[in-house]
């Protein structure tokens, strides 16, 4: 009986450790997806002059979830008629926050991009895209560094923590 409990505890805490490690990995990946999405959005905007709603719909089909969900929510909100693009952007970002591994600093960068979206001419918009991409780049670099450092740590800590708990409890 005791053995079974011990195994349970160890499994659970190892699982937690792995989940945390995965979170880190996902964050890097999602940032990369976001970067790709914004790049294709730029292409839609600059080269084909597609309106935002349609451009975002197309972008959402090119990237994996949850970034795709974010863009499709945004596109839907625009089509339904929001008072401004920024408002729709903020709302979709709130739902992205709940479903992604992105951190507040990453979300801030994306929010800042939304503030000017659709309010400027092509040139300004392009500059804004460049700025946002470089910001996301920085976030991604930081995230991947953190991932490299902490991924293994979380995994082993989870296991060791479980072990510690069983020893104390026995």
């Amino acid at each position: 009986m005791k053995l079974l409990g011990a195994i349970f505890i160890i499994c659970a805490s190892t699982g937690i450790g792995f989940a945390l490690a995965r979170n880190l990995k996902e964050r890097t990946k999602q940032l990369r997806d976001m970067k790709q999405a914004i790049t294709s959005l730029e292409a839609e905007m600059v080269y084909t002059m597609t309106p935002l709603a349609e451009a975002c719909h197309r972008v959402s089909q090119q990237v994996p979830s949850p970034v795709s969900t974010f863009f499709s929510t945004f596109s839907d909100a625009l089509q339904k008629g929001e008072s401004s693009a920024y408002q729709a952007w903020t709302k979709s970002l709130a739902s992205l926050k709940a479903h992604s591994c992105l951190q507040q600093s990453d979300l801030d960068v994306i929010l800042q991009f939304g503030a000017s979206l659709g309010q400027q001419d092509l040139e300004q918009q392009q500059k804004q895209v460049k700025l946002t991409l470089s910001n996301i780049d920085r976030q991604e670099l930081e995230a991947s560094e953190k991932q490299k450092r902490s991924e293994n740590m979380y995994k082993s800590l989870g296991f060791l923590g479980g072990l510690l708990m069983t020893i104390i409890l026995i």
């Binding site: 902490s150 740590m153 800590l157 060791l160 923590g161 072990l163 510690l164 020893i167 104390i168």
Partner: peptide
């Protein structure tokens, strides 16, 4: 005697955790 083993176990595990954390710069 169990108590001694328990303490030893805690010691070993904590030492490992310490090493891991130290390696990661925390």
């Amino acid at each position: 005697v169990n108590l001694i083993f328990q303490i030893a176990g805690v010691g070993i595990v904590v030492a490992m955790i310490h090493t891991v954390l130290k390696q990661m710069g925390k």
